[in-house]
Design a protein around this nucleic acid. Structure first.
Lengths: 341, 341
DNA sequence: AATCGGTTTCAAACCGCTTTGGATATGGCA
DNA sequence: TGCCATATCCAAAGCGGTTTGAAACCGATT
């Protein structure tokens, strides 16, 4: 059942039927109701492809998921971010189209999405410190929102981010207050913007107490269980091992825990660990009592917010670029305690 | 730059240009090259919306991601499955459109995707034992491939699945061979088809050795760290605690490990654990030596295979429904050993 | 009765491609 | 030379909606 057929069946022109269904004022209320009823009865749903061509809008937003070519790693926070964003899209009748591309093809993917008209805007994931994508999107005029920020970019652009620097600063201060002096940072890859910011927060806190950072206590790698384990194992074997760890994610935290327990040490007593908790639905940090003390910020909420921003931007492209800085909670769990001795 | 403009610039008709670009034979080779060159030079890319309307094909496949309303849990294997499938789509110039919907809206989502013509086919995720979606998709004539199977469905349908039953049977036998007699099963939700199959494999293996299953050693819940921890904690407190666990996922396995170590027991010596490892990119089961002994099957490969199947089905709808049963490897890691005493 | 403003409806153009059904040109062959 | 098959190109008609510009209708006004 298409528009023309429905119109014929009603003895009306397609024009009128279209207008009736789309709430235009220039149609008699009685007619509108008749049309609505018929549409429902015949289960008519306008063809999305036709609407898209006619209106010139894609009614879709793109998420380009870069897959690191070397490690083929998909960012684990991605599923929850998508879940948050997806809610917003459904509510607004937008489609979400995902492009999973090797990271070196990313630029071309944006260009293609733009010129082929597949989407009205995109979400930029996992920004690096120097991120060329932002300039590119500006240049080709495709509305976008960045999940995170790119320090190296000067021109204004829309973003949603967690205050990573503050979060890690507070976490470090918390450990310092507990008497820890050898605090390790098991960070994500430091060309990623969020990782650099966390590092800055950590260094700030140390500096404020006059503590010189120890390069041997700073690791940077993909946020996997194994790399957390490896970093912790190495550091715990040092002559002056750390008494506390800051971990980039729940998953690295678990690797650290494995290393700690493997040495016969006890978490929260011998060694303290604070993680950053993205509040992933499938990876909850405990329930009533958190497993790990953590800086927590829901990535799902971030997805929701980013999507809303983007739809707003698509509707009103002239608006100044919105930004939103989310503060992380510091939640106390079972993995921290006073420094031993 | 659109087709008409390009054609004018070349002094040709849109027809010829279109044909030249799409490799139709009825165009002079010299002309074709001229067109190709001009297209490249002007960076012409045909408008996807127009192609879709003209051809009547969506050039897109849908993934409907049901979000459990109660727990709001997104399946963690989802990201890697998508990554695998996405590769295939990109290569074939298909878009991947994701609908994240509360699971009670799922049926309507399929109906809408179909009648609005957003997609040419869908992947069905996380089938339950009795799954109405399969009959529905048959009825509305939307090509699909199921990731997993639905035991309750009699008519043939296309699927890709891991041999979950065999995997868990083998894992159980392996533990039995090591002398374990009290083997616990920390399963996923048992209305999910895969969970039921795993349970069947576990029970088969026990039965074959004449061991009566102990209901106290069988848990079924979402596959989270916490629920693994809770189940293991409870079971380890039993008068005759299990000496071995089968876990539904890497994540539940980590919860079990936490419970085990919290009791001062050592994994692989006091308690053995075998997990099912989906080979998630961000959750690798160790590297050279696996952390956990595991039944392993790459969900990313499954995504790749499912996507290929679906594209095949879209191209040749009359083909009999393809199916593919993947066998899981049993890989030996550090989490298993002979039964104590 | 003619005119008028407002309401309601419609025919047709358009979005940017594909595809059908010729038309034209070319060359080989009788 | 005339005819036909083949190669090459094109005009126009879709695809299924939206949107523009105009027509029809209405009761009210003059």
């Amino acid at each position: 059942m298409n528009l023309k057929e429905l119109a014929t069946k009603l003895g009306l022109s397609p024009t009128t039927v279209s207008r009736a269904l789309n709430g235009y004022p220039e149609v008699n209320e009685a007619t509108r109701e008749r049309v609505m009823a018929a549409a429902k009865r015949h289960n008519y749903r306008p063809n999305a492809r036709a609407i898209r061509l006619a209106t010139g809008r894609a009614m879709a937003v793109g998420h380009v998921i870069p897959v690191a070519t070397r490690h083929e790693i998909v960012n684990p926070i991605f599923a929850d971010f998508i879940a948050g964003a997806g809610e917003t899209y459904s509510r607004n009748d937008y489609d979400m189209v995902l492009s999973v591309v090797p990271d070196e093809d990313e630029e071309d993917t944006y260009r293609a999405l733009r010129s082929k008209g597949n989407v009205d805007g995109v979400i930029v994931h996992a920004p690096k410190m120097e991120d060329r994508r932002i300039a590119l999107l500006h240049e080709i005029g495709l509305p976008f929102v960045v999940h995170g920020r790119a320090s190296g970019v000067t021109l204004p652009y829309p973003w949603v981010d967690v205050n990573n620097r503050r979060a890690f600063q507070r976490a470090t201060e918390f450990l310092l207050d507990l008497g820890h002096r050898h605090i390790a940072l098991v960070n994500g890859l430091e060309f990623m913007d969020f990782a650099m910011r966390r590092r800055a927060g950590y260094l700030d806190a140390l500096a404020a107490r006059g503590i010189a950072p120890d390069p041997a206590l700073m690791a940077s790698d993909e946020m996997t269980e194994v790399s957390g384990y490896r970093a912790a194992t190495r550091m715990l074997a040092l002559p002056r091992p750390p008494t506390a760890f800051l971990a980039a994610s729940m998953i690295s935290g678990m690797g650290i825990r494995r290393a700690v327990e493997e040495r016969g040490l006890k978490l929260g007593r011998d060694v303290s660990v604070i993680i950053h908790d993205d509040d992933l639905s499938y990876m909850k940090n405990g329930e009533d009592v958190p497993i790990f003390t953590a800086t927590r910020s829901s990535v799902r909420d971030a997805g929701r917010i980013a999507a809303e921003m983007l739809l707003g931007l698509i509707a009103r492209p002239q608006d100044p670029p919105p930004t939103r800085l989310l503060e992380a909670d510091l939640v106390i769990g079972q993995s921290t305690g006073p420094a031993p001795r």
